[in-house]
Simulated scan of single mutants.
Amino acid sequence: MRQAEGNATVEFIGWSVAIVVPVVYLLIALAQVQAASFAVVSAADAATRVLAVEAGDDALTHAHLAAGLALSDQGVRAPVQQAMSVTCVSEGCTSGAVVRVEVGVGLPLLSGLGDDVVHLRAERFVRPAEREGT
């Protein structure tokens, strides 16, 4: 009788790598999208809180700082001046404004090859704080 020869160990390792590597890559990509989604919502919330309580010329600057901090907490590297915008609903923003934060997320390990794959956006409505003396 001939002894059976085979490459079961090699096949097991090969199939394991072929299955495990894409699954791990998918989990990492989904984790990055989830973190960016949380960052966008947190940035919009933080900016609206600042604008709701602070009036004056520095309110928008402080809102940008709050949004930038919220984005950086989740590892999102986006220029806050481009990612966040404030649009007035009426003249002079007396009846409110819409704060929009928008960022893109690229694929892990492939971010240098192309554009962002997923674009995330969060919008919040805010009634700006009343200026003193008005």
Rank of each mutant, 00 (worst) to 15 (best):
L71D: 03
I28V: 14
S95D: 13
R127T: 15
F125V: 05
V23L: 15
L113V: 06
V89R: 15
R121P: 00
A18F: 11
L26H: 01
L26R: 03
T134C: 10
A66T: 02
L51Q: 06
Y25G: 05
A59P: 02
A83Q: 10
L120W: 11
G133Q: 10
V33S: 07
D116T: 12
A55L: 02
S111I: 00
W15P: 00
A70G: 02
I13P: 01
G6V: 04
P22W: 04
N7F: 08
Q82Y: 05
L69D: 13
A47I: 06
W15G: 14
T48V: 14
E132N: 11
V103C: 04
T87P: 12
V17A: 13
S85H: 06
P22A: 08
S85F: 03
L110K: 02
V101H: 05
G6N: 08
V118T: 08
I13N: 01
E11G: 06
V98T: 13
L71I: 07
Y25F: 13
A4W: 04
A36K: 10
V50N: 12
V20R: 00
Q32T: 01
I13Y: 02
D57E: 14
E11V: 15
V23K: 00
A67C: 05
L60Y: 09
D116S: 14
S95Y: 03
F38N: 10
A43G: 07
R49M: 10
E130K: 09
H64G: 08
E5Y: 01
H119E: 13
V80N: 03
E132Q: 12
I28G: 06
L27W: 03
S111A: 15
L26F: 09
V101S: 05
D116E: 15
T48Q: 08
R77N: 11
P128R: 11
R49H: 08
I28R: 11
A122K: 09
G106H: 10
L69G: 05
T48C: 13
A52L: 08
A36S: 09
N7R: 09
V76L: 02
V17L: 15
G114Q: 11
A18W: 02
V126D: 07
A31N: 10
G106R: 13
G112P: 09
V105E: 11
E5K: 12
E5C: 04
E5V: 12
V21A: 11
A29E: 04
E123H: 08
H119Y: 14
A43L: 08
S111R: 12
V103D: 03
L51C: 06
V98H: 09
A31I: 00
A44Y: 04
A66L: 09
A66Q: 07
E54V: 11
E91Q: 12
D57H: 05
A55P: 00
A29D: 04
A36E: 07
Q81P: 00
R2T: 05
P128H: 05
T61H: 05
T94P: 00
P128E: 05
A122T: 11
L109I: 03
L113F: 12
V17D: 01
A39E: 02
F12T: 14
V89N: 14
P79F: 03
A8K: 02
I19S: 10
E91D: 15
D73F: 02
L109G: 06
D45I: 09
E123Y: 06
A97T: 14
D115W: 07
A70H: 02
D57T: 15
L71T: 08
R124Q: 13
E91L: 07
G68V: 06
M1F: 07
S42H: 10
G68H: 03
D73H: 09
H62S: 14
